[in-house]
């Protein structure tokens, strides 16, 4: 069974847990997730999904070329499940299923990447940055990997130094202006694209994870600028393996010339999707009920 290496409070509502699980860690890709059984008892009942935050070893902070033996999850206390999880102690066994789902699709020749993270959405994006840096080599300049991190206030800005340490450029925004630029994280991206000529951003790839409105804006920007964009979506899940269809995400698919809505499973086809296929107008579907 997997074992908790540490379970640390990193700020008011956020925790980071490192778990020794070589079988999962050695196969895991950025963007994939694990299903954690919170308790052996039946309350809370369902497993909870967590994106793989970091691939690492028991002691060191960052992965080297050896196959990682540990994963980390980064989580926010939002309810009963995460409260119980936060009480797990070092050395305790923990029941995991994974790695699950499809991670980020990474081509070999990614020249420049921009990652946009909103709040706890930063969780699966650190392992992505780790691998992106790995793909391109440690000596590539900071300009090649930029992270925009946004949140309500300074407490929601996580992993700032971790991204810096792996050699990424980090820019922060908060809604209340308590850290970085005041405003939305997607505005940082708009400014970035304004400053760079289309030629400079020709081979740019976008990645994002965060609240739905943020991802929707990100997707619209990517669409207008014609930049490939992958987003990792959060959804409530029961099974995590594609059996229950509970985590369905509405997507728009071209079928014989018509755009039709097709539900895809966040746990199986996702959680990472090409942003152009997501049917963002969730609310208009709800109105049809």
């Amino acid at each position: 069974m997997a074992r908790v290496i540490f379970n640390r409070k990193i700020s008011s509502d956020y925790y980071r847990m490192r778990i020794l699980c070589p079988e999962i860690a050695s196969r895991a890709k950025p963007g994939q997730f694990i299903m954690v059984r919170i308790t052996e008892l039946l309350d809370p009942l369902l497993r909870r999904p967590f994106g793989i935050h970091r691939l690492c070893h028991e002691r060191d902070k960052h992965t080297d070329n050896n196959s990682p033996s540990c994963i980390e999850i980064l989580y926010k206390i939002v309810g009963k499940g995460t409260i119980v999880l936060s009480e797990k102690k070092k050395g305790e066994g923990i029941d995991l299923m994974g790695p699950l789902g499809n991670g980020f699709y990474l081509e070999q020749n990614i020249e420049t990447a921009v990652i946009v993270a909103g709040g706890i959405g930063v969780a699966p994006l650190f392992s992505l940055a780790q691998v992106l840096k790995g793909v391109k080599g440690k000596n590539t300049s900071r300009d090649k990997l930029t992270i925009f991190i946004g949140g309500e206030n300074r407490k929601d800005i996580l992993c700032l130094n971790d991204f810096k340490k792996i050699g990424a450029r980090v820019v922060v925004s908060t809604i209340d202006g308590s850290l970085g630029t005041k405003g939305l994280v997607t505005d940082l991206l708009v400014n970035f694209l304004r400053k760079h000529s289309p030629l400079e951003t020709k081979n740019l790839k976008l990645f994002g994870c965060g609240p739905l409105p943020m991802l929707r804006t990100l997707s619209e920007i990517a669409f207008y600028k014609n930049i490939p964009c992958q987003v990792s979506l959060e959804s409530r899940m029961a099974c995590g393996v594609g059996a229950c269809q509970g985590c369905a995400v509405p997507t728009e698919i071209n079928k014989e010339g018509d755009r039709v809505v097709l539900y895809q499973r966040a746990c199986k086809e996702g959680p990472v999707f090409d942003s152009t296929i997501i049917f963002w107008d969730y609310k208009s579907i709800l109105l049809k009920v």
Binding site: S235, R236, Q245, A248, Y263, I285, V289
Partner: peptide, 14 residues
């Protein structure tokens, strides 16, 4: 095609 999301919610004991 199934129902619109959210399709799941946990309740006490179920």
């Amino acid at each position: 095609s199934g129902n619109p999301p959210p399709r799941l919610v946990e309740t006490t004991g179920g």
